[in-house]
């Protein structure tokens, strides 16, 4: 069981915390120790709003182990409104209704269960916004 790994990532999984370069302002998710644009090492935590639009998507019919119960489920590349792209599952949506450009917002949901007695991993997924 990889408990330390999931614990270590809780700020990303639950809060969508990335990084902001204090020198040039470049944002990143996941957080980076060095700025991709100006190579500054002076980075601070930055929490993304969780609002964005679908850049691309796929409906998964043949899943990796641990995700069988959710098939078919939708995975997507999402353009966050701050200009950073993120990979996540979509939820609360009919796979047939997903389209490129669809507005979405972040929610925290169960990602997977590791058997009956194992870990339950929570993290971000995205859904159509409840209020437009």
């Amino acid at each position: 069981m990889d408990i330390p790994r999931h614990w270590r990532l809780h700020n990303q999984r639950y809060k969508l915390e990335g990084s902001r370069c204090t020198r040039c302002g470049t944002l990143a998710f996941p957080p980076r120790p060095i700025c991709r644009v100006c190579r500054s090492r002076d980075m601070e935590p930055y929490t993304f709003s969780g609002r964005g639009t679908v850049y691309s998507y796929s409906v998964v019919y043949q899943s990796p182990e641990g995700f069988e119960a959710y098939v078919p489920y939708v995975v997507a590349l999402i353009d966050l409104e701050e200009g950073v792209r993120i990979t996540a599952q979509l939820t609360d949506v009919n796979p047939d209704e997903v389209y490129i450009g669809m507005p979405v917002e972040m929610v925290v949901r169960k990602i997977r269960e590791d058997g009956e007695r194992g870990l339950i991993v929570y993290g971000y997924k995205f859904r159509p916004p409840l209020t437009a």
Partner: peptide
Amino acid sequence: DGDYEAEMGLSFVAINALLMQRYMY
């Protein structure tokens, strides 16, 4: 990326599917 792609439920096929969907669009 293990923490940010695979752990989100993306098989390697799904990652390539994201490319193909966008390419078609």
